[in-house]
């Protein structure tokens, strides 16, 4: 494997409370290759967005990285002073947020916002920056970019605004783009367009993407690899096709079955009983064990780590060699 662009090692994110710290993200590990699109999927509260914010250095206090490391191209970035983090943020790692209306400033024109971003990160003149800005808007598919660049955000539709946000994220030619639910606020017909633009523009620029979403369908069509998160941990990570066609972790199996699809005609959806545990009430052992129909004794006591399974890794005792050897599972 080539040197990873980004390595997350044993990342733990905690929120201190009066009753002791709550662990929202618990010891997650993954690598991201240059140019790769990694999908991060999970239900609300699984820790997807926190992981994204932590990489970006944008964790809101009191949330904090309690332990673990984040490496960008062989350089550790999680413990840098604020100034140094600012130099990375936007320049080398940038972010696309869910709601394009709140991520653009309504009081400035698109031109002002784009030019400000470009000139903050790159040493170019005002006119050069404007030229680049128009080029960017053109690339993300805004018609008549030259004219529309002087419009305000409210003059754009939701889909067009999200295109502008993507242009902003790409303005400084970052190596990594973190897209946090970039299409959740949009209609389906527009969603497909935005996903296409994001995918195409990032691959043209050779930028890696971390695509955070709750929509497995979006990931199926976009990502190379997918990490399935549950209760602050990675349950399963591997190539998208493998995981969709042959999920191994019982949570992933349940998740896939519960998604209504256009193709199949089953009468009932698979349902996982219960819901994800609250942070102050994460069960001992595997966090999924109370909802898992294949759970056995060990699942209730010990917590599984990621186990290599060919092209992917699964955090489930069902695939542990010593457990398999004992033949305990029916």
């Amino acid at each position: 494997m080539t040197n990873p662009l980004l390595s997350v090692k044993d990342l733990v994110i905690e929120f201190p409370t009066r009753f002791g710290p709550l662990t929202a993200v618990d010891t997650i590990n993954f690598d991201l290759a240059p140019g790769e699109i990694l999908g991060v999927v999970g239900e609300s509260g699984a820790g997807k967005s926190l992981t994204g914010s932590a990489i970006m250095g944008l964790l809101d206090p009191p949330g904090r990285i309690a332990s673990g490391e984040i490496w960008l191209k062989g350089e550790r970035i999680d413990n840098l002073p604020n100034e140094a983090q600012r130099a990375i943020r936007g320049r080398r790692i940038s972010m696309v947020f869910q709601d394009p209306l709140t991520s653009l400033n309504p009081l400035y024109t698109i031109a002002e916002q784009l030019i400000e971003t470009i000139r903050t990160h790159l040493k170019v003149s005002e006119s050069e920056a404007r030229k680049r800005a128009i080029g960017l808007l053109d690339d993300v598919g805004i018609p008549a970019a030259e004219r529309r660049i002087d419009d305000y955000p409210h003059q754009f539709s939701g889909g067009m605004r999200q295109r502008v946000v993507i242009a902003l994220a790409l303005a400084a030619e970052p190596e990594l783009v973190i897209a946090d639910e970039p299409t959740t606020a949009l209609d389906v017909s527009v969603q497909a367009q935005i996903i296409d633009v994001l995918k195409e523009q990032c691959s043209e620029r050779g930028a890696s993407v971390i695509l955070i979403t709750h929509d497995m369908g979006v990931i199926a069509e976009t990502a190379n690899r997918v990490a399935v998160m549950y209760s602050g941990r990675i349950a399963e990570i591997g190539p998208v096709k493998d995981i969709i066609q042959n999920a191994m972790h019982p949570y992933t199996v349940g998740l896939m079955g519960s998604i209504p699809t256009l193709a199949q005609e089953e009468d009932r959806l698979v349902q996982i009983p219960g819901s994800m545990p609250r942070l102050n009430d994460i069960p001992q052992g595997c966090a999924f064990n109370p909802r898992c129909d294949r759970a056995f004794e060990k699942c209730r006591i010990d917590r599984p780590d990621l186990i290599d399974q060919g092209t992917r890794q699964v955090a489930c005792w069902l695939y542990d060699e010593t457990v398999l050897a004992k033949g305990k599972i029916a």
């Binding site: 017909s189 497909a192 929509d215 369908g217 199926a220 998208v240 998604i259 699809t261 256009l262």
Partner: peptide, 15 residues
């Protein structure tokens, strides 16, 4: 609309 829906079965398909 049908063509725009991202679907699990369609991994890798071009819209």
């Amino acid at each position: 609309l049908l063509d725009a829906v991202p679907d699990l079965e369609m991994a890798g398909r071009e819209h």
